[in-house]
Design a protein around this nucleic acid. Sequence first.
DNA 1: ATCGCTGTATTAGTAATTTAATACAGTAAG
DNA 2: CTTACTGTATTAAATTACTAATACAGCGAT
Lengths: 132, 132
Amino acid sequence: MITIETSGFIPIYEQIKKGIKSEISLGVIKANEALPSIRDLAAELVVNPNTVARAYRELEHEGFICTRKGKASFVSENSSSLIQKDKVRLMEDVFDRAISEARKFGLDAAEIRRIVESRLKNQENRGEGEGR
Amino acid sequence: MITIETSGFIPIYEQIKKGIKSEISLGVIKANEALPSIRDLAAELVVNPNTVARAYRELEHEGFICTRKGKASFVSENSSSLIQKDKVRLMEDVFDRAISEARKFGLDAAEIRRIVESRLKNQENRGEGEGR
DNA sequence: ATCGCTGTATTAGTAATTTAATACAGTAAG
DNA sequence: CTTACTGTATTAAATTACTAATACAGCGAT
């Protein structure tokens, strides 16, 4: 289930893209399976169909899904390996950003490790599947 | 030195706010010292003065700096303790986001620790003071 | 062919960010 | 007082993301 954060600065179509990648990565949607239709997903997320369409269009352009007009959008055959590479890059990026932000505030490696540990524990206690 | 990322999704005034907080936190600007003038900083960052003014206005509203019209904006007397609290909150937020993103892709705590370690090492090797 | 679903495309409107050009007001030095 | 610097305020324009309404085109079942 994809969750949308309207309060942040991250565009909805980016959140949708990341959400789809996540679901492919987790095997919630498998290769050659159909994604939800643009209109359905838009209704579910309470978002404009065009916003979902943009996410799908970009995912197609990046090779993760392929689209057959009139039928549906499908997870690409080779999505697994693509996602795998993308996942590594994505995660490196995410933590690089977090760490360099911490560095900007003068935290050293030890303090960063401490925070990560504390947040890992904190999130474990608040139930597994909850995004927020 | 504050760096602005125009390619991202984060508003410039937010980046400036974070940059100032960082410099206060690091002691680059100390309590009761004057910040660069709005026009100077705008020229340095190649940004509109209004954008810097907005950052200053919000920082003042949050209590980090105080402004004397006709003179300059100064770092607040009690900025240290304020920043300290804000820093903790900010860092928790940053790593919460990173971790919950990782969780969305099915990474467990061990894998997250491994990535954090690898990125910490990676950034050490690429010189200390570099943001990117 | 018609109906109902799919994705696609176009156009227009709203909201937020940023830019731009000004004008105003306080401070300090000449 | 004049000059030159501070921050502040206002208004308009440009840009971008998102929303909204609508039309078009492909696919498949009836």
